[in-house]
Design a protein around this nucleic acid. Structure first.
Length: 449
RNA sequence: GCUUCCUUAGCCAAGUUGGUAAGGCAAUUGACUGCAACUCAAUGACCGAUGGUUCAAAUCCGUCAGGAAGCUCCA
């Protein structure tokens, strides 16, 4: 397993807009942080794209032998949460916990690996306040009437991630008007608030802005620069840009060596939006189409491209899944019948791993999967099929299924099931079709066939 | 207006250190099969348009057209 650590992995870095060779900071260990949800409503299906993508990346790293420290946060302090709490006349915690649970339910359904940590903003308030205080101390931030703003002019590289020039932004059509700010691009680190949960600080009673929490959590949990920071493309600006600005001011680093952004998702070529009424909630999508279908559908598209969710895409995805399930089941059964060990690894998975190493080229990896299925099916049809080959195919497919995170497991058959299956094969051989048809019915009921 | 990105067969979709285009779905044909399911094989594109660089470009550069996202704490 560890031998794969020598594998060369390339990743597209949003920071440089180039494909770069992936080198970890600590040998054999990957630190990865992905921006999580603001827990104020049900997650929709598009929210699951980064979830599934980065989980698959996590699985890939794990499979090839890395230890992965995966962290994703919950924003549980936010205007939307406060407003919803007021509307329902409950505490903010009730709201945020409700939707945190909903979110976690979706992750469970989608077979997401446990994270190293899933921190919440409220758990890091002391660190956040200290972090902001330091920014004020070093003069990268300023206080106006209790509000604290970050001064973007204090950072040389502001715009390095989004490739946006400060001057262009300022002359842009839609810059927020705020008399308090020195510069329209300055963003709130801490704001004075009337409603909702608030914390006491020297500046005022209030709560933090959105952009600081990720910096602080990464600092506190990882204690320095990390390997990968991920998130949706929509977060690139201003959120990730502002994270980098704060880290540059604080530590003179850009938080992560590799910034990875997944593309957005459309439904029938339209952006999901409440006004169009085309939003599919994640849990509804999972219930309607199945977790594996959703997972594979989200993965079967270059991750930086816009993904279009359509009925055709669902159909295509199911075709792949059906093939995989059928083939895997037949291999499993055949090997079980012959008493071959069902756990193992095979080098036949290498093309798949190479596709994954090529900037997470999942469409090609899935093609590799289909190639393997084709080989296995042909061999299964072969009258004197080679058990060794079937075993290799099975092991390779098992690895791919693990990386893709599908709910397809190795099945251990009971001796009764095996003998029933043998009986079925014998009856077919002796052309006792009445009996074989009956046995087939039973076997299908038991999901052996 | 500014920034970034996209445009490949009926549909979905890979493919940038340049050298005559993966795969899937659908369709048609054939093979296998006691029947069914499953499966296998064969058949299609000169890569948005137009210039340029080059012996050679889907792949590099220019222009145009169409589309997307961001610039508004929405992944």
């Amino acid at each position: 397993m560890v031998i794969y650590l020598t594998m060369k992995i390339n990743l597209y870095n949003s920071l440089t807009n180039k494909v770069e060779e992936f080198k970890t900071i600590k040998p054999g260990e990957v630190s990865m942080y992905v921006c999580g949800p603001t827990v104020y409503s049900d997650p929709h299906i598009g929210n699951m794209r980064p979830v599934v993508l980065f989980d698959t990346l996590n699985r890939f790293f794990t499979y090839v032998g890395y230890k992965v420290k995966f962290v994703s946060n919950f924003t549980n302090v936010d205007d939307k949460i406060i407003n919803k709490a007021i509307k329902e006349n409950v505490s903010e915690e009730v709201i945020s916990e409700r939707y945190t649970k909903d979110y976690m339910d979706c992750l469970d359904a989608l077979n997401i690996l446990p994270a190293y940590k899933r921190p919440k903003v409220t758990e890091y308030m002391d660190d956040i306040i200290k972090y902001i205080a330091n920014l004020v101390n070093i003069n990268a931030a300023y206080v106006v009437d209790g509000d604290v703003f970050f001064d973007v002019m204090k950072v040389k590289d502001y715009g390095c991630l989004s490739k946006i020039k400060i001057d262009d932004l300022i002359s842009g059509a839609r810059v927020e008007l705020n008399d308090k700010k020195h510069n329209p691009l300055d963003f709130a680190l801490w704001k004075k608030t009337e409603n909702g949960i608030k914390w006491h600080t020297d500046w005022c009673e209030g709560r933090p802005g959105w952009h600081t929490e990720c910096c602080v959590m990464i600092d506190s949990i990882f204690g320095g620069v990390i390997d990968i920071h991920g998130g949706g493309l929509d977060l690139k600006f201003p959120h990730h840009e502002n994270e980098i600005a704060q880290a540059m001011a604080t530590h003179n680093n850009k938080i992560a060596h590799y910034w990875i952004h997944n593309g957005m998702m459309n439904i029938n070529s339209e952006k999901m939006s409440k006004s169009l009424g085309n939003v599919i909630k994640a849990k509804d999508g999972i219930n309607l189409y199945g977790a594996d279908t959703i997972r594979l559908l989200l993965l079967n598209c270059q991750y930086r491209n816009t993904l279009n969710f359509t009925d055709d895409a669902v159909r295509d995805t199911n075709a792949i899944l059906d093939k995989l399930n059928n083939c895997y089941k037949q291999l499993n059964l055949k090997l079980a019948l012959e008493g071959v060990k069902l756990e193992g690894k095979s080098d036949l998975i290498n093309p798949f791993l190479e596709s994954m190493s090529d900037d997470i080229n999942l469409p090609n990896a899935i093609t590799n999967l289909l190639d393997m299925i084709k080989l296995a099916n042909s061999e299964l049809r072969n009258k004197d099929c080679s058990l060794d080959k079937l075993k290799e195919y099975f092991y390779a497919l098992s690895g791919m299924i693990y990386v893709l995170g599908l709910h397809i497991n190795v099945r251990i058959y009971t001796s009764d099931e095996i003998s029933l299956y043998k009986e079925y094969l014998d009856s077919k051989k002796s052309k006792d079709f009445v009996k074989s048809d009956e046995l087939r019915k039973v076997l299908i009921e038991k999901e052996v066939l």
